[in-house]
C-alpha cells in the first residue's frame, strides 16, 4: 500500500517561540482512516497545517501525496479546518458557486446530494447559519470534491447525534471508494467508531502510533481509558 503522507522528524517552532511539534514521524497508508488525537495544544492543528502546506516546518520532511506540501499546498486534498469560516455576507448557494469556481474536481451534483443528506439549510446568508449548519456546509463542500485525501479537523462540530453519525458514515463510505481520510477530533468516542490507525500527541510529541486494534489488545482497555491513563496526573 502506498503512503499518502510521510512525515519524518517534523518539528515546528512558531515565531513567538512556542514549540508546537518536537520531531514527530509517522506515515499514513492509502485507503485508511487515520486519526490525530491529543488534548488542546498538543499540536494537532499544527500537524494538519504542516501536512497541507499552510505552515513551513521548522525542520523535518513531509511528503503529502508524494509532494512537498509547502508552500503551494496539495490540490488532491480537501481540508475542513477547525473553524468553519466562510464568507458571512454571501448566501449559501452563491458560496457553493464561488467554491466550485476554484476548488479542484468539485461536483455540484455531489454537493447537492451531500447537503440533502446532512440536512443543510440553503436559503440563508452564511452569517446567519448556526454552528451546526456551517459544519454541514463545509463538510459538504469538502466531500463534493473528488480528491484522494480528505483532511478533517473536528468535522462534527455543533452537529446533533444523527447528523454526526451521518458524517461518520460518509467517512467510511469514502474509504470504501479508495480514499484516505485524516481525522482530527477531541471526541474520542467518535474517532473510536471510524479510525483504523491513530497517533496520540502530547505537547508536540507522539505518545502512541499504531492501529486502534493493537492499542485495545495491548492495553485491554478502550480508547477513552487509554487516553485518560496517558494524560492522568496532569489534569487535576
Amino acid at each position: 500500500m502506498m503512503d499518502v503522507i510521510e512525515a519524518k522528524g517534523l518539528s515546528k517552532v512558531y515565531k513567538n517561540g512556542v514549540k508546537a511539534l518536537k520531531g514527530v514521524s509517522f506515515s499514513i497508508r492509502s485507503g485508511r482512516i487515520f486519526a490525530l488525537l491529543g488534548p488542546n495544544g498538543a499540536g494537532k492543528t499544527t500537524t494538519l497545517k504542516c501536512l497541507l502546506g499552510t505552515l513551513k516546518p521548522t525542520s523535518g520532511e513531509i511528503l503529502t501525496l508524494g509532494k512537498q506540501p509547502f508552500p503551494d499546498g496539495v490540490k488532491d486534498a480537501s481540508f475542513v479546518p477547525e473553524e468553519k469560516s466562510l464568507y458571512d455576507w454571501i448566501k449559501v448557494p452563491k458560496m457553493v458557486k464561488i467554491f466550485g469556481s476554484f476548488a479542484p474536481n468539485f461536483s455540484f451534483e455531489r454537493f447537492e446530494k451531500l447537503a440533502k443528506r446532512l440536512g443543510l439549510t440553503m436559503d440563508r446568508k452564511i452569517g446567519e447559519l448556526s454552528q451546526g449548519n456551517r459544519t454541514k456546509l463545509y463538510v459538504s463542500l469538502a466531500f463534493a470534491q473528488d480528491v484522494k485525501l480528505y483532511v478533517l479537523d473536528e468535522p462534527t462540530w455543533g452537529l446533533d447525534p444523527l447528523i454526526r453519525k451521518e458524517v461518520l458514515n460518509l467517512v467510511n463510505e469514502n474509504v470504501v471508494g479508495g480514499k484516505t481520510v485524516l481525522y482530527s477530533s477531541h471526541i474520542l468516542s467518535e474517532v473510536e467508531e471510524v479510525c483504523d490507525d491513530l497517533i496520540i500527541l502530547k505537547e508536540g510529541n507522539i505518545m502512541y502510533n499504531g492501529t486502534l486494534d493493537n492499542l485495545k489488545e495491548k492495553n485491554g482497555t478502550n480508547l477513552s481509558e487509554t487516553f485518560l491513563d496517558m494524560f492522568r496526573g496532569e489534569k487535576r
Binding site: L52, G53, T54, P71, D72, G73, V74, K75, A77, S78, F79, P81, E83, S85, L86, Y87, D88, F99, F102, A103, P104, Q145
Partner: peptide, 13 residues
C-alpha cells in the same frame, strides 16, 4: 476571518 483555509491548497499561492 480565517477564510484563507478555504483557498489554500485548492489554489496554489
Amino acid at each position: 476571518k480565517r477564510t484563507v483555509y478555504l483557498l489554500i491548497g485548492r489554489m496554489n499561492r
